[in-house]
Design a binder for these strands. Structure first.
Lengths: 367, 367
DNA sequence: TTGTACGCGTTATCAG
DNA sequence: CTGATAACGCGTACAA
């Protein structure tokens, strides 16, 4: 007696309206190939070790799978304690922000390339929205467990939710240094070294008094830059007191042409801005220099610890460094892949290349 | 006698590396609350359907769930629900091209927003990927079956593979008109109407002889623009013969300043370029005008049927129309969601807004 | 070498 | 209103 191969689902939700044929399952492949479902699993699962399958059977299975367009169900794979070759990408803000100033795009370029190279597909968890799946509940982050592991972008990822994933042993990589959460893996740009080098270069040009302009928060990216900046000053034997750092919550209003002139009068010959999401400090700096009618780099050298905002791309290339965002993305994927495979973490810092630019030169001669 | 709550998994794969503690399951919540697992599912599932739960029981369950820190397993949930709330996005080229000229970004903005609003997550497939998951062969397209449905980007999606998906009843939406494949759902911009309107506006400015510069292929996006262009000429009572369309396979070599001058001599006062991936025609047009030393729009009006390439964004805004890419992405998701739900298709065309720009004005007086 | 039996954590039905 | 029970699709010891 043959069992009915395809009895109607007993008492379950009705088949999808529209008479759609459902995704083929291993059982159907098995039927078509004349083998058992387990055999199909063995063949398609690509398990190299131990079990051997006759070439003939394997061929039949592969053929049937192809004919049916079989593709494994990722949820079922996960559930069966296997892997589904899916890596998650979760950003608390939109992954594709409309505000292009602050875009993950270059980063995603690297993520996609590296993931593809390693045979992973990417799942974008739309966590930002207020819609159905992404509703703000504590379960919002939990959806990522569908994937083998997940990348987190942005500084606003809720710590508690993240901690839960980490303590559960779910492979997680945060993009950007994040030390407050014990055991959280992260990758980041080496802002310290890069900022250090910028100062070194400026010093080599002859600058003796530099000021760093930064926003007034405690983001790791900011403190790292300041740290590197100060270390750079020390290495060059330059004054690294508190007056070398200008903190402001509102660069555009406090960074006036007058402020600029005062610095010049005090002997400052180079100003260094940190990069932020909005490009605030750099924007303000450029504006102030313009208003003050100063020649850059003739009368004053400028440097930017990062890349300029997209809308300022047409201006003179700032001296500073480039964050290799694609490489950063690739590094994040490599680390995540390592975690998924149960391997150990690798170097989390990627180095930033110095960018000579055109906004810094020798300091002016001052009598 | 109590059953051992947590017997070691019988003969299964060793626990994930890192000795991770397994999360509580509904069964454990049930145990703590003194109810059955099914009851837990009912309470936590929030299904209002028919069944009512005593306030007391509900409370107990919620409390237990909270105490244990229960979070549902998305894999199990999606497996049981026979859907995974995943929409695929497949692009034959990289989804995040390094060549920014031709970028899906604005489109993805809309896709992400709409998908999030509807509770879908996104799976990114890369046709070009060479890794284990995405071997470049003809199987590449088959991977998308992992999702509930899939969006296809780019004109190079292989027809045969697509047909296979369509005939299998797998929900597919192609972005860009695509009529040669019976039954394939698509969304696209209404190039015909938009191009028509551009011509109408130029005619209203006083132009009487226009020429369309387009590439020499048969992409629907190109033929639609030509169609609208010609219809626009007819509506305005202007000559719409074959001399009104200039086809070129390599615009930069054939669109010479001399060609331009000849058109002017023939009485042409406005040139219209189609938008392409590379921006070729528009690029060539601008270059030729510059080389010819012509004043635009003083001596010659230009229009672009679409948006300028990113690297030309700094130049004068071209008269023409904007393709509302985010809306297009949103429309694609809406359509796909409808197909997944077994509903009927909606209007596939999104309208493009006219962009006045600065490259068109009244024609010069010619004696 | 291949088939059988079971479990992963949920959801949904049906009998108490 | 609640508790068994049967899938969902797949991976994997273990028996055949």
């Amino acid at each position: 007696m043959e069992e009915p191969r395809k009895r109607a689902r007993p008492g379950r939700a009705p088949a999808p309206p529209g008479g759609r044929t459902s995704r083929p399952r291993q059982a159907e492949v098995a039927g078509l190939a004349g083998v058992s479902q387990a055999t199909v699993s063995l063949v398609l699962g690509g398990k190299k070790q131990g079990v051997a399958i006759s070439a003939e059977t394997r061929q039949k299975v592969l053929e049937a799978a192809h004919r049916l367009g079989y593709v494994p169900d990722p949820a079922a794979r996960r559930l069966a304690a296997a892997r589904n070759d899916l890596l998650g990408v979760f950003s608390f803000t939109a992954t594709f922000p409309t505000d292009v100033r602050h875009s993950y795009y270059p980063f995603l370029v690297g993520v996609e390339r590296e993931a593809a190279a390693r045979g992973y597909d990417l799942v974008l968890f739309t966590g930002s929205s207020s819609g159905g799946a992404g509703a703000g509940g504590p379960e919002a982050l939990s959806r990522v467990r569908l994937a083998d592991g997940c990348l987190f972008l942005g500084r606003h990822v809720p710590t508690e939710e993240l901690r839960r994933l980490v303590t559960d042993g779910f492979p997680v990589v945060h993009v950007g240094r994040r030390d407050e959460l014990e055991g959280l893996a992260w990758v980041g740009a080496d802002y310290v070294s890069a900022s250090h080098e910028v100062v070194t270069r400026l010093a080599a040009l002859g600058h003796r008094r530099l000021v760093l302009v930064r926003e007034d928060d405690e983001a790791p990216a900011s403190t790292d830059r300041e740290h590197g900046f100060l270390k750079g000053l020390e290495s060059a034997g330059l004054p690294a007191g508190p007056e070398a750092v200008f903190r402001t919550a509102a660069p555009e209003s406090t960074l006036t042409p007058e402020r600029l002139r005062r610095w010049l009068d005090e002997g400052v010959t180079a100003l260094v801005a940190e990069e932020t999401d909005t490009g605030g400090p750099w924007r303000a700096l450029r504006a102030a220099v313009r208003e003050a009618g100063l020649d850059c780099p003739g009368e004053l050298s400028l440097a930017l610890l990062g890349s300029p905002p997209a809308d300022l791309a047409a201006e003179a290339v700032p001296t500073g460094f480039d964050i290799p965002r694609p490489q950063l993305g690739a590094a994040a994927v490599r680390l995540l892949a390592a975690l998924v495979a149960g391997e150990d973490a690798e170097e989390p810092l990627v180095v930033c290349a110095f960018r000579p630019g055109a906004t810094a030169g020798p300091p002016p001669h001052r009598p």
